[in-house]
Design a protein around this nucleic acid. Structure first.
Length: 474
RNA sequence: UCCUCAGUAGCUCAAUGGCAGAGCAUCCGGCUGUUAACCGGAGGGUUGUAGGUUCGAGUCCUACCUGAGGAGCCA
């Protein structure tokens, strides 16, 4: 990709601005000038931490969020990625140059601002800045204004401008929650003694053979983008005992719902010597830890998102565990036409999850509806030792896992029943030839967890640049 | 893949088959505590594309394009 040579930018303030800025070249400065950081002894403070600096002179660096004015009084709103700050400029208290400069600010112009922090109940956030000095790094020209106004927009427009939409308070809050969710996942597994061993993203042909995969050219051959790291995680678990992989996964199904992305992130622990009960316990501990972390670190974000924290505070161990058979009878009682052997549809999942105040784990599905590698229940071979965790409030499946088949001959038989070529799974069968042990794990979809925790209508807001069936731009 | 809906000013949306409009944004003016500020004024249009019906189409019909909601699919 070639970078466009930046054109000289007109500040539009004329000669008077020179007194107010620290840059030597006011007129026609280029982007390169921004690297010449002016020497200023006043400390830069993040907006979120201004409450600890009442009465002090500080600098903030950020962008213009909005400008309100009332005659001789200006209220520019700045954002810096940590929060929003209202600044105040009285015409009588400042130079005519500064007043004119602030008055000409446009949305999303980049700035350095210096002033004294003041507590004021009238300001959003209770803190405001008495602005003394303003440096404009780039003035957004009025002839080409920032496209996303603080007013309402349609989803098509916002998705086309996703690269700018991220600057809104709401989207930034979601990304902060996502950050804490991922941090919590990594810390959780670290504390539990799990070793990160990532799976490849490029996989050979016919790797799992169930869902639709994206095909890519691999030199003179074909390859596929991974739909799950699980099979590789099993190999790692035989090496490390407790392991997990965490990366992007890809599904080429033409799903078109508020719960699906074609590219999403999944964390997949795999544990040697684990059985179904161990897997369920690990999953409920993980989800509890993630929710607790968000409640601890993201109260402001949940407030921005207007997400009621009460249902999240109810997420405590243990989670209810019900068999597929019990789930089926509950769903049928609630009016569904579902029959034994069917997988749960989206509506069925919602019916069931609304009966509980925390995630519910449904275990022992009919083996015929599940993947080839799942261990059959020794007491009822027609069901598999597997579990799906359904999030509350109708957010659907957030965890899917199972105990894996550890017997070589049974696995061979299953491959044949699923019309999968044994040659493609030679390495996977090897894991059962030398030192096979009972083992299992699960996958947890990060975006669905974030959507549930944030209380979002649609999963597309949970990832910086969502990929859906009809959208791959920007 | 199927069903439904939408596409009109930069944005969000109006307009019985009969003069294409409003709010916001932008520009100009007013206002010394605004809270998506407010008040007054100005500029801004190939009504998604291509056909068709009609005296006359943003509106009705056909096809296509681009999206959205749902179903199905989904370790």
């Amino acid at each position: 990709m070639t970078l466009r040579q930046p054109k000289p930018l007109s500040t539009g303030y004329g000669r008077s601005l020179r007194a107010c800025v620290n840059f030597n070249k006011v007129h026609g400065f280029t982007m390169a000038d921004m690297t010449e950081t002016p020497i200023d002894p006043v400390p830069v403070v993040e907006i979120a931490r201004l409450g600890q600096h009442i009465g002090e002179e500080v600098r903030i660096q950020g962008w213009v969020y909005n400008l309100r004015e009332s005659g001789k009084l200006l209220f520019p709103l700045f954002r810096d990625g940590t929060g929003l700050l209202q600044a105040v400029v009285f015409q009588k208290n400042v130079s005519p140059e500064l007043f004119a400069q602030v008055r000409s600010l446009t949305q999303e112009s980049s700035i350095h601002a210096r002033g004294v922090v003041r507590a004021d109940q009238r300001a959003p956030g209770g803190v405001e800045l008495d602005l003394h000095v303003l440096t404009v790094l780039q003035l957004v020209p009025a002839s080409d204004p920032y496209p996303i106004s603080p007013k309402e927009h349609g989803i098509d427009f916002l998705m086309d401008h996703r690269h700018l939409w991220l600057r809104s308070q709401r989207q930034a809050a979601i990304l902060r929650v996502r950050h804490q969710v991922i941090r919590a996942v990594r810390d959780f597994f670290d504390n539990e003694g799990y070793v990160l061993a990532d799976a490849p993203i490029l996989t050979p042909a016919a790797c799992e053979g169930t869902s639709t995969l994206f095909e890519v050219q691999y030199f003179d051959d074909k390859a596929f983008l991974t739909q799950s790291g699980q099979l590789y995680a099993e190999a790692a678990a035989m090496a490390l005992g407790k392991t997990y992989c965490f990366g992007p996964t890809f599904r080429a199904e033409k799903s078109k719902t508020r719960r699906h992305l074609t590219e999403f992130w999944m964390v997949e622990p795999e544990t040697a010597f684990a059985q179904l009960d161990d897997i369920m316990h690990l999953a409920e501990k993980l989800v509890t830890a993630v929710v607790a972390r968000v409640l601890e670190h993201c109260r402001n974000e949940l407030k921005t998102l207007e997400r009621n924290p009460a249902p999240l505070e109810a997420i405590q161990l243990p989670f209810p565990r019900i068999s597929y058979d019990e789930a089926l009878s509950r769903i049928q009682t609630a009016g569904s036409e579902m029959k034994w052997g069917d997988d749960l549809g989206g509506g069925d999942e919602t019916l069931l999850s609304k009966q509980f105040d925390r995630p519910v784990m449904v275990h022992r599905y009919p083996a015929s509806a599940k993947a080839f590698y799942m261990q059959p229940d020794p007491e009822r071979p027609e069901v598999a030792l597997c579990v799906d965790m359904l999030a509350p409030e109708g957010y659907g499946e957030i965890v899917g896992g199972s105990q894996r088949i550890h017997d070589l001959n049974l696995l061979r038989q299953r491959l044949e029943e699923h019309h999968l070529a044994e040659a493609d799974f030679r390495w996977y069968l090897d894991l059962r030839r030398w030192g096979s042990v009972p083992h299992g794990g699960f996958g947890m979809g990060i975006e669905r967890v974030v959507a549930w925790i944030c209380g979002l209508e649609h999963i597309r807001e949970t990832i910086p640049f969502p990929r859906t069936i009809y959208r791959i731009f920007p």
